[in-house]
Each structure stands twice: as C-alpha cells, then as structure tokens.
C-alpha cells in the first residue's frame, strides 16, 4: 500500500448503542467528499459499520481508522476486549456470541464478519485472547 494521503481516527465505546454507526457514517461522508466511486463507498460503509458494531457488541472500547491512498482504502478496527477465540468459527455465517439484549435489538445474526469479508478485497484479523482484536480491511478503488 502506498503512503496514505489522508488518515482519520474515530473512537468507539463498547456497549454504546446510541452512538453506534457514527464512525462508519463519518467514514462514508469523508469518502464522498473526496469523490470516491459510489459502489466502493457502499462496500466500505457496510464493512466499517459491521466492524464498528463488533466493537460496540463484543469489546470494551476501540478505535476505527480510515486511510486513503491513491489506489487503496484501508479501514482498521482495533479494540481492547476479549479477543476472538476461534477466528475460523467466528467467520462462519450464523456464529454469534451476542448477548440476549443485543439479539433482541436485531444484532447477533452472525453475519457481520461474513459481510466484512464480502465487502472488502482483503481482510486480516489479528486477535489475542483477553487483550483485543485488530481487523484490517483493504478496498481497491480506481
């Protein structure tokens, strides 16, 4: 990846459902402002939203980063939290450890990570038990 031309950070609080989605929404607005293709923005918005929601649903706190390079967009979601015990299992559609409260709200379909995988060109997950998780997603544009 070439040197990023623009870098934006957004903090995300675990359990803060009221603010959930704001980081993804700001990322979307920033990309629109710099004239990124609408289809690419849509993919980034969906993936960023799911990554942000996973911090809200499963971690204590975290940070979202958007890096814009000439040919690539990168979204990084890193958190302090429980980590993911089995990444392959977590990537499977339908797998979820979401709380009952979250499920009542319509979260916990176990489709967030599959959506992130579908929407990004590459996804890398680094996770350490009881420490946290870092998800890096790249999107080619132009």
């Amino acid at each position: 990846m070439t040197t990023p031309g623009m870098v934006l950070h957004f903090s995300v609080e675990g359990g803060d459902f009221a603010a959930a989605g704001e980081a993804a929404s700001k990322i979307k607005k920033a990309l629109r402002k710099i004239g990124i293709d609408a289809g690419v923005i849509r993919r980034v918005a969906i993936a960023a939203y799911e990554a942000e929601m996973n911090i809200v649903l499963h971690a204590r706190r975290g940070r979202m980063t958007l890096e814009v390079a000439e040919d690539k967009l990168r979204v990084i979601a890193e958190d302090e939290g429980p980590g993911i015990a089995d990444v392959d299992q977590a990537m499977q559609e339908g797998f979820s450890t979401a709380s009952d409260l979250a499920r009542e709200m319509g979260f916990g379909a176990g489709m967030g990570l599959p959506n992130m995988k579908k929407c990004s060109d590459t996804i890398t997950i680094e996770t350490v038990k009881d420490r946290g998780t870092k998800v890096i997603m790249d999107f080619n544009h132009r």
Binding site: F17, A20, G21, M105, G106, M111, G112, N115
Partner: peptide, 23 residues
C-alpha cells in the same frame, strides 16, 4: 436482523421491520 439488512438490502429500497431503536 440488522446484519442481514446490511448484507442484503439494496440502495433505494424500503425496509420493513419491527426494530425501532436508533441503529
């Protein structure tokens, strides 16, 4: 299910749901 909508609803569509919270 919000992630189901995220993954499958199309731009410009109307979403029918009983979920009413701000997400």
């Amino acid at each position: 299910l919000l992630s189901d909508v995220m993954g499958n609803a199309g731009e410009g569509e109307v979403w029918l749901t009983i979920q009413t919270h701000s997400n």
